[in-house]
Amino acid sequence: MAVLIDPPIWPGPRGLLWSHLVSDHSLDELHEFAARLGAPPRAFDRDHYDVPETAYERAIMLGAEPVSSRVLVMRLTAAGLRRRRLRQPG
């Protein structure tokens, strides 16, 4: 059971690169960790938190396990916590 974070490689708001923070155990574990990290509730998106590069090292210091994006998705899916975005018609 772990909270995982991938590298900040995803371009996003404010010209920053962003990571994804997930749990391979439960959403409760994820929300608790995100609160300790100081991530706002609006950063939660279905099954992960978007975390700016400025918080990456702090997340690791708090105990997040750094993994590749591929491993993050594999472990999230294996835990049954992956929630894909619904496709829009058209």
Rank of each mutant, 00 (worst) to 15 (best):
L16I: 05
L17Y: 15
R14D: 15
Y49M: 09
V3L: 08
F44I: 09
H31C: 05
A59C: 10
G90K: 10
G15D: 08
A35N: 07
L16M: 13
A79I: 07
H20A: 09
G38I: 15
G90W: 09
S23Q: 08
L72Y: 13
M61D: 05
Y49F: 14
E65P: 00
P8I: 02
R82N: 00
I9S: 08
V51R: 09
L76S: 00
P11F: 04
G80H: 11
S23I: 13
V71E: 14
L21T: 12
D45L: 05
A79Y: 01
R85I: 14
L62V: 04
H25M: 10
G63E: 01
P89R: 14
M1W: 01
V71D: 04
H48I: 02
P40S: 15
D28T: 06
F33M: 09
M74Q: 09
R36S: 05
L21H: 13
E29P: 08
W10L: 15
D6L: 11
L62F: 06
P11I: 01
R42S: 12
L72G: 08
I5C: 11
G63L: 01
A34K: 08
A64D: 03
P41T: 09
E65H: 01
P52N: 03
G12S: 12
P8H: 11
L27D: 05
R87G: 01
A43K: 07
D45K: 05
A64L: 06
W10H: 13
A34R: 13
L72R: 08
P66D: 08
R36K: 15
A79N: 02
L16F: 14
D50G: 11
T77C: 02
P66I: 10
L76V: 07
A79L: 04
L81M: 12
A59W: 02
R85Q: 14
R75H: 04
A35M: 04
P41L: 08
G15Y: 01
H31A: 07
A35C: 01
D50Y: 11
V71A: 10
R42Q: 10
P66Y: 08
P40L: 13
G38V: 10
W10N: 05
H20W: 15
S19G: 10
Q88M: 05
A64Q: 01
T77S: 11
D28Y: 03
F44Q: 05
H31I: 07
Y56T: 05
V3H: 04
M61H: 00
G80P: 02
T77L: 02
M61A: 03
G15N: 13
D24P: 01
W18P: 08
L30D: 04
G63N: 05
A59I: 02
T54G: 00
Y49P: 05
E32L: 13
L30C: 09
I60L: 02
E65Q: 12
S68T: 15
L16Y: 12
A34G: 08
H31M: 01
R58D: 08
R75G: 07
F33Q: 08
P11D: 03
D45I: 14
V71W: 11
S26H: 00
Q88N: 06
L16E: 10
L37P: 09
P7L: 11
L17P: 02
T77H: 06
E29A: 14
H25P: 00
V22S: 15
V51H: 04
